[in-house]
């Protein structure tokens, strides 16, 4: 067995979803191997799923209850989670990345974004599909990280165009610059809210790559810490 093949486990309470994901992953080049799928979260902790690189988690797991606790526990164990869900609400999307999910993909975004998200997550990297991008751009939570206008423009253009090259053209920047803006916005979110191992890793990677300076993050977090004094109901 090739050790380089990305492996994933699917937790979803709809039987048909894992079947579809498996087809998409088989067709991906190079393919991604789905090692197990189940309706219960235990499949991510035991059996072949315990060793999978990526956990693909459906949020609406247990009869309408959203699997936030499951997501938090997976992150605490440094598992790489891609949330794949029917729930398109911005609040849920933001909450999932706050809990440490590396990507949040809505079910109508299709294979292109899910496969990209799984590949990024396997390396411990985030992926921001258009819907999540729009949710971050439009986040109106008073405790949100402050994003510079160019990062908001980048997120909005990516969300609206669903094409990084068109989004970059409309803003008069290169695709790599656009990706940098999106990634920086994403890292600002990683440095805010709850501490989670995957988020800490994202921040460390961003600094290593020179994507952001340490002062960028510290300015951002200290601003947030000050703000959070007035919002005690948000757990640190």
């Amino acid at each position: 067995m090739d050790d380089n093949v990305i492996t994933a486990v699917v937790i979803d309470d709809h039987e048909v979803i894992p079947v579809g994901i498996r087809v998409w992953c088989d067709e991906a080049k190079p393919p991604i191997r789905i090692v197990d799928h189940a309706t219960k979260i235990s499949a991510a902790w035991t059996g072949p799923g315990a060793q999978a690189h990526v956990v693909i988690l459906d949020l609406g797991l247990q009869h309408g209850r959203q699997a936030f606790n499951e997501l938090r526990r997976l992150n605490e164990s440094r598992r790489h989670v891609v949330v794949f869900t029917q729930d398109a609400s911005s609040k849920t999307a933001i909450k999932c990345i706050d809990l440490g999910a590396l990507a949040y993909v809505t079910k109508n975004e299709g294979p292109q974004h899910l496969v990209a998200a799984i590949r990024a997550a396997a390396q411990g990297l985030s992926y921001t599909p258009p819907s999540l991008s729009g949710a971050i751009a439009a986040d109106d939570d008073p405790n949100r990280p402050q994003l510079p206008p160019r990062e908001i423009d980048a997120l909005r253009a990516w969300c609206g165009s669903r094409s990084k090259s068109m989004a970059a053209r409309s803003l008069g920047i290169s695709v790599s610059t656009l990706e940098t803006y999106i990634e920086r916005a994403r890292v600002r979110y990683a440095s805010a809210g709850r501490p989670a191992p995957t988020k800490a890793a994202l921040m460390a990677r961003a600094i290593e790559d020179g994507l952001m300076g340490i002062e960028d993050l510290s300015a951002n977090t200290s601003e947030l810490d000050t703000k959070r004094i007035g919002a005690p109901d948000k757990p640190a």
Binding site: G134, A137, A138, D140, C159
Partner: peptide, 17 residues
């Protein structure tokens, strides 16, 4: 066709792809 409406502070953007 994918229609997206994004409201950010100060800007309303209506898109279709």
């Amino acid at each position: 066709a994918r229609i997206t409406v994004v409201g950010t502070p100060g800007v309303v953007s209506v898109n279709v792809v």
